[in-house]
Amino acid sequence: MRKINPNSRRILFSIGILLLFNLSTMAQDDLLEMLEEEQEPESTPVSATFKSTRIINGHSIETRKAGSMEVIIQHRFGRINSGIENFFGLDEAYIRIGLDFSLTDKLTVGIGRSSEKATYDGFLKYKFLEQKSNGGFPFTATAFFSAASDTRDRPVEVDFKHTLSYVGEILIARKFSPGFSLQMMPVWVHRNLVETPEDVNDVFALGIAGRQKISRRSALTFEYYYQFNNTTDSPNYNSIGLGIDIETGGHVFQIHVTNSRGMIEKEFIADTDGDFWDGDIHIGFNLIRVFQLKRDGKPPKPMEGY
């Protein structure tokens, strides 16, 4: 038979004392501590990975709750290196006006019109995975599909189908901390008709974007799209954007600098002709106003007997 050595007996004794001590602290029954212990940390969907449904030029993974409508006015001035005669670009204006409707909490449809190339666009956006708090699912993923029609007057008449372009994109984002979020987005851009024989119809790109809050209501943002296969003949650069988000109640105001003029995917991802490092930079802003068309439902009634 093995002898229990005095050391381990002492340990057992200490454990016993500890257990007793534990019981007595439990008996003190601090009600609040008891409640806190009982409340399991819930794993809920993470909200506000980004302040807005747009980061700078491109979309974020965010979709608004069902019944919301967003009015979006996007505006880019001319290039700041265009000199005093063009008032550093402020004489020029490129604009996109858009309306987004949230049909469900996860599905948004949008339409828009851009002054650049007189383009109409429409998109569908569907959030199919959600990041959850407290060790739940690690990221949010949203699928995006858009179609655009370039309705410029051209010297030669083109069929409607030749004015069309399509974009398919998967947006994947994670909110790492209350202040910091990062997003990756593989994109495919298809153009039915390209400008020159050297241009490719299908462009593949990978975007990366992020935000860092600098106060409770403002954040710094960046966005970059790397093109894998676009032509290098005509001026063609990867889209870069740096910005600030400012939130004021029902509005989000985004101010930024970017080398892209267009405000739809097909334009800024595959057709950016400004060299950011050469000063081909546009000052721009997005003004987003959210309207709640349909309320989320009545608040619960008070309990009976009170």
Binding site: L31, L35, S47, A48, R217, E247, V290, Q292, D296, K298
Partner: peptide
């Protein structure tokens, strides 16, 4: 007479979803 209560902030339901987000975030 001892009493304690604990209310999860995220459990507050607003009529406007964006307001709820601002309430929690800001």
């Amino acid at each position: 007479g001892e009493i304690a209560f604990s209310i999860p902030i995220k459990g507050f339901q607003f009529a406007k979803s964006l307001m709820q987000e601002h309430f929690n975030e800001n």
